[in-house]
Amino acid sequence: MAQHQVNYGQDAGLPVALTTIDKIVNWGRSNSLWVLTYGLACCGIEMMASGASRYDFDRFGTIFRASPRQAEVMVIAGTLTKKHAEFIRRLYDQMAEPKWVISMGSCANTGGMFNTYATVQGADRVVPVDIYLPGCAPRPETLQYAVMMLQKKIRREPANRNRNLKQKRFV
């Protein structure tokens, strides 16, 4: 039996918040971005620093996961070699929808200084990229900014988007 009775109509209003499905789904998605650890080269060190205590990625709900099945963001941090391209695509395919990709550093964006036969000239040749983060290497603050930009982007998207339909080029 209730010990006291709250008169919602009188005191603080009804405990009801009105919103849209899109907003509440995206609110949840954007604030619990679990990141697949993907340190490939020197940028990986900066990504680790962003996760460590000084920069503390957990504040954003961004937690590093070592399994693609538990992650929704892939931060490609480093040089993507041609030998590795196959595996990054496989891991990307293993991530559950919805999924996003941040390409971190010049190497992942364009091949960077490795204008050679062994480096993929931009990770977007293999996986679709949402945020390109410039720098060599980008500082942890900029990676956090990229994640915040991604959050903004997610909040603007419809919740029931079907990316697969739009990604015809990568089907």
């Binding site: 391209a85 196959e86 000239q121």
Partner: peptide
């Protein structure tokens, strides 16, 4: 990487490498 992952027929869709960073 294109041939290996998507197959040779994807060459037209992905396009040649952009070497200008």
């Amino acid at each position: 990487e294109v041939d290996k992952i998507f197959g040779k027929e994807a060459r037209d869709i992905v396009g040649p490498e952009i070497r200008d960073s």
